[in-house]
Amino acid sequence: MDRRIEKSKKAIMDALTSLMAEKDFDKITINEIAERANVNRGTVYLHYVDKFDLLNQCIEIHLNQLLSSCMIPQSQEISRNSPKADMLQIFHYLEQHISFYFILLTNKGTPTFRDQLLHMVQEMISVHLNRQNILIRVNKDFLVQFVASATVGIVEWWIINEMPYPAASMVDQLWQLFEKVELVNP
């Protein structure tokens, strides 16, 4: 991709994020985004259909960066790390990028992020269950939904409350809960 295009897209995404730190997504206009990014309104529309498309692409990029930086497989590939080590990498990544995730989780009008995060966690849990020979006593879909919802809820609570516990402590606590629901072998 042309560096100028890349630079413009980054400026536009950064402008959206900084505006979301100041006000609700629903109240942000394309004009404000363009002004903050120091680009023409037409440049925003050149890359994005509307502000919702911009938000979705921004979320997708950040979640993909989370996945790639933590080396978490998106398919049936085997991770080089244990699931607990992968989880710790996720929490460390979230710690390093707290401002972005805090904005998305606290801004009214952005449930899309939580939905996409939930979907990502559901896929990761499904992959883990498919790899392991764990005897599941309940419906697999039910278990995936339950554990993913609980995990995202804990992550959301941790970020919104400005990380009251260290990442390693969060992972240890979650891991103990996973052992209780027999998601992992103790």
Rank of each mutant, 00 (worst) to 15 (best):
D2G: 09
I5Q: 12
I5A: 09
S8I: 06
K9G: 04
A11G: 08
I12A: 05
L19W: 01
L19M: 07
M20E: 01
A21N: 11
A21G: 12
F25A: 05
K27P: 04
I28C: 05
I28G: 04
I28N: 03
T29E: 11
E32Y: 03
E32Q: 11
I33F: 02
R36I: 01
R36H: 04
N40M: 09
N40H: 14
G42M: 12
H47C: 08
Y48C: 00
V49P: 04
D50N: 15
D53F: 11
L55I: 10
L55S: 07
E60V: 06
E60H: 13
I61F: 11
N64E: 10
L67V: 15
S68R: 13
S69H: 14
C70S: 03
P73K: 13
Q76V: 11
E77C: 10
S82H: 13
I90Y: 05
F91M: 02
H92C: 14
Y93N: 00
H97T: 15
S99G: 04
S99I: 04
F100P: 03
F100L: 13
L104C: 07
L104N: 01
T110M: 06
T110P: 02
P111G: 10
P111I: 09
P111Q: 07
L118K: 11
L118M: 13
M124F: 07
I125D: 07
S126Q: 14
H128Y: 14
H128F: 12
N130A: 15
N133K: 12
I134V: 07
V138K: 13
K140S: 11
Q145N: 13
F146S: 14
A148S: 14
A150F: 07
A150N: 03
A150D: 02
T151Q: 03
G153V: 05
I154C: 00
V155K: 06
E156G: 08
W157P: 03
I159D: 00
I159K: 00
M163N: 05
Y165A: 09
S169P: 03
V171W: 06
Q173F: 14
Q176E: 08
Q176P: 02
L177M: 02
K180Q: 11
K180C: 08
E182S: 07
E182G: 04
L183I: 00
V184A: 06
V184S: 07
P186Y: 08
P186A: 12
